[in-house]
Design a protein around this nucleic acid. Structure first.
Length: 548
DNA sequence: ATAGGCGGGAGAAGCCGGTT
DNA sequence: AACCGGCTTCTCCCGCCTAT
């Protein structure tokens, strides 16, 4: 079946064009306070025809829609130029308003931009809902609702007036990649960057930019977009440039907050890498606790939506200077660790419960330390195991976190005011978080495959579909150790057994009852134990060998 | 290898009726 | 008269999965 089309001559661009045929079918009008509906009659049709024959006496945008993923989606139905998105009479009204705004040099042009989308063909008729465009797209529905632009403008002006005048705020709009005038002078930055290829900002803006006669130069627009030739690496490059500018602008030791929505792991990784490449040190990542869920969050049971907030800081001058001398040495590592720990929150509580501060855990401290070295082109002078052992020696541990001595004292004091410490809520979304989750579970209780598998399946709900599916057995094999029933029971299992089962208390490590109970349980390798590390290393080598 | 099914996704926003 | 709160959801695209 083919679409009914209409061929006509478009005077504005002096071309014969072919568009999908549209027929008015319903009029919603008001008489006094009441609203009525009717089918268009001969008078209404004659009026539309009459308007169509007249020429609009003002300038209006007739730009070709630019190339892009969104901007030319309506070429197929003949909406190729900006003015095609409006009915003649609405074009006329908007146009007259814009014309007058220019003439009076008022701020009314700003109001006009608020109406360019709502009064266009993007406004959908929805029998069971209220009209609106489909956000994030330039989608034109098969049923358009043409609104009364005159009334629309009037309402917007009313809203504008009620906003009042706010004093002393300066707003600027320019490219983040080219803002170089601030040099270590900004106190704080909050940024809400584009999340990869979610929204094609410059393309979506085109409809109102055409009215303003100012268009975005999208060369350094930080998005992924096939038509614009921007993949993940281009996105990351541009984001790094932006973050570098921010780092330059920020005072040393000061903070930046990055808001992010984890729609895709690859994009999430790009953002983190870009931050570190730009010189920032990530100090905290947590879920944004939104007061109210969106409609979709409430209705769909398995909608996984977490807004994340990344807190990061620009290292202070002292550390950078000292690091120049001590880089690549153990002293440099511990200097970084001390300085970093100093920046991290000491105690976080909610509803009378203390929360685990993820960034104070050994593996994340190690990650940050490595990133700091790699970013500055220095070799990392110690292994993870050595780092973990060093942490233990230098910094007092509390609830699986590490503190500076004075911080530990503060933590202890505040810790007494709460009932319990919440376990860190982990969402398994990729391999890394799956390993962390397993580590948490197995530290709490060494378990057999049969016992942990159902829990794993339950937790795996938020697994990103495009991630390679990893088998639990594979994850366990690669990262954890299993007691095969030979030799002494490992202390990780033994201590759990003796503290949780009365009948297993006070038994020797080679007791047959103990051994039978411990057999086939998986446990977390102890980084301080040479034998544990040896087992893991051996396994990694075997795997590498098998891949050849 | 290709086709087809299927699930899920950056909500925004105009308007009405009730309240202050 | 001004303000406030609540209401309500469509089509397309992408990518994964299954079937042919």
């Amino acid at each position: 079946m083919d679409r009914a089309r209409l061929t006509k001559f478009d005077k504005a661009i002096a071309q014969t064009i072919q568009q999908a045929k549209q027929v008015p079918v319903l009029i919603n009008y008001s008489d006094g306070n009441k609203r009525y509906e009717k089918a268009p009659d001969a008078f209404d049709m004659a009026l539309i025809d009459k308007i169509d024959e007249l020429d609009i006496p003002y300038w209006y945008p007739t730009d070709r829609m630019p190339e892009g993923e969104e901007s030319r989606r309506n070429d197929g139905i003949g909406l190729t130029h900006v003015h095609h998105f409006y009915t003649k009479r609405n074009l006329w009204v908007l146009d007259a308003f814009v014309h007058k705004s220019h003439k009076l040099q008022t701020r009314a042009l700003w109001v006009a931009t608020a109406c360019t989308e709502g009064s266009s063909a993007l406004n959908r008729e929805r029998p069971f809902g209220l009209p609106s465009k489909l956000s994030g797209t330039l989608y034109v529905s098969s049923m358009i609702r043409e609104i009364n632009t005159l009334g629309f403008l009037r309402r917007k002006i009313g809203k504008y007036k009620t906003c009042g005048i706010v004093p002393c705020i300066s707003i600027g709009a320019k490219s983040s990649t080219e803002t170089n005038e601030f040099n270590s002078s900004i106190d704080y930055i909050f940024t809400d960057p584009p999340f990869g290829g979610n929204l094609m900002y410059s393309e979506l803006n085109f409809l109102w930019e055409a009215w303003l006669k100012v268009c975005t130069n999208n060369k350094t627009e930080a998005i992924t977009n096939k038509v614009q030739g921007k993949g993940l690496s281009e996105y990351q490059r541009i984001m790094t440039e932006c973050f570098r500018t921010f780092c330059h602008a920020l005072k040393p030791g000061h903070w930046m907050t990055v808001e992010f929505h984890n729609s895709k792991n690859s994009v999430w990784n790009s953002i983190q890498e870009a931050l570190q490449n730009a010189g920032f040190v990530i100090a905290d990542v947590r879920m944004l606790d939104k007061q109210q869920g969106s409609f979709k969050q409430v209705t769909s049971a398995n909608a996984v939506k977490q807004d994340l907030v990344i807190s990061c800081y620009k290292p202070n001058g002292g550390l950078e200077d000292r690091f120049k001398l001590s880089a690549g040495t153990e002293e440099g590592v511990w200097d970084f660790a001390r300085t970093h720990l100093k920046q991290l929150p000491v105690f976080v509580s909610k509803n009378g419960q203390a929360e685990i501060i993820a960034e104070r855990q050994n593996y994340l401290l190690f990650d940050r330390m490595v990133a700091f070295h790699v970013q500055r082109g220095e070799r990392v002078p110690m292994s993870a195991a050595e780092f973990y052992a060093g942490l233990e020696q230098r910094f007092p541990p509390r609830d699986g976190m590490y503190f500076l001595p004075d911080q530990a004292a503060e933590y202890d004091k505040k810790r007494m005011t709460v009932k319990e410490v919440l376990q860190l809520q982990l969402f398994i979304s990729d391999e890394a978080s799956a390993i962390q989750w397993l580590k948490q579970q197995l530290t709490k209780k060494p378990q057999t495959f049969q016992s942990i598998h159902p829990q794993f399946l339950k937790e795996i709900g938020s697994w990103q579909k495009y991630e390679k599916v990893l088998e639990l057995s594979e994850l366990l094999e690669q990262n954890f150790l299993r007691y095969d029933g030979k030799g002494d029971v490992p202390s990780q299992i033994h201590s759990h057994q003796s503290s949780n089962y009365k009948e297993l208390r006070n038994l020797e490590k080679d007791d047959p009852v103990l051994k039978a109970n411990a057999k086939d349980r998986w446990y977390v390798p102890d980084p301080n134990k040479a034998s544990d590390l040896e087992k893991l290393r051996e396994r990694a080598l075997m795997q590498e060998f098998e891949e050849y």
